[in-house]
Simulated scan of single mutants.
Amino acid sequence: MSPAPDERDRIRAAMDRILQETAQHSNGALTIVALAQEAGVPRNALTQRHPDLKNDFYTQVRARGQTPDSEIRLRRQIVKLMELRAKDAIELAQLRTDVEQLVRVVNQLTMHNHQLLHALSQPDSPVRALPTHPHPGRSD
């Protein structure tokens, strides 16, 4: 489908309305979605057919000292992700500490078990194995 002959003019007029905060056909957000809606064109008209107008829109937004809404959302998301990453780093450090402690405990128990098995294997050992009783419903 080819673009309407006045598509660029409609986009420019929509840019003016949004930047002057007089949007008529959109919510007036500083986004490409709102610009496309305001101009009555599909979003891909700005991203594929007229990327120069899209870039010009964002340039004008920044020149007025404003930040595009999409950038504001992305910055908020970055902050949230950085907070999550910091929390994950704390949790990871704790898990590493826990693993080190568990490895030490396993090594101590293994050494103790070897000592007990060795003592049990001696004929004059005071260590005695206790008889085991099967658990109900369990086959060993």
Rank of each mutant, 00 (worst) to 15 (best):
D124I: 07
A45F: 00
I90Y: 02
R73Q: 09
V61I: 09
L81E: 13
L92D: 04
D124M: 08
T97Y: 01
T47H: 04
E38N: 09
M15E: 13
H112K: 15
R17K: 10
S125R: 07
L46M: 04
L30I: 02
G65D: 07
H135R: 15
K54R: 15
L81P: 01
L95M: 10
N44W: 12
T31P: 05
L120R: 14
A89P: 00
F57P: 05
A93S: 10
E91H: 06
A119V: 05
S125L: 01
Q108H: 13
A36S: 09
R76Y: 03
A23P: 11
V99G: 00
L30E: 02
D124L: 09
A23H: 10
V99T: 12
T132R: 14
A39M: 04
M15P: 09
P126H: 12
R49N: 10
A36K: 07
P134W: 11
F57H: 04
Q37I: 08
L35P: 05
L81V: 12
A119I: 03
V41L: 01
E71A: 11
V79M: 02
H112E: 15
V99P: 00
G65S: 04
V61K: 05
H114E: 15
H112L: 15
S26G: 08
Q37V: 10
R73D: 07
K87D: 13
D98C: 04
A129I: 12
R128T: 11
D124N: 12
E71H: 07
T22F: 00
E83S: 11
V79G: 00
T59A: 14
R49L: 11
H133C: 02
L116S: 05
H25K: 12
R64Q: 15
N113H: 06
T47L: 04
H25A: 12
Q20A: 13
K54F: 02
Q94C: 01
Q60M: 12
P123D: 11
R128K: 14
Q108K: 15
Q77K: 13
E21G: 00
S26P: 04
Y58Q: 08
L19H: 04
Q115T: 14
A36D: 02
Q122A: 06
H133Y: 08
P134C: 03
A36L: 02
R76W: 01
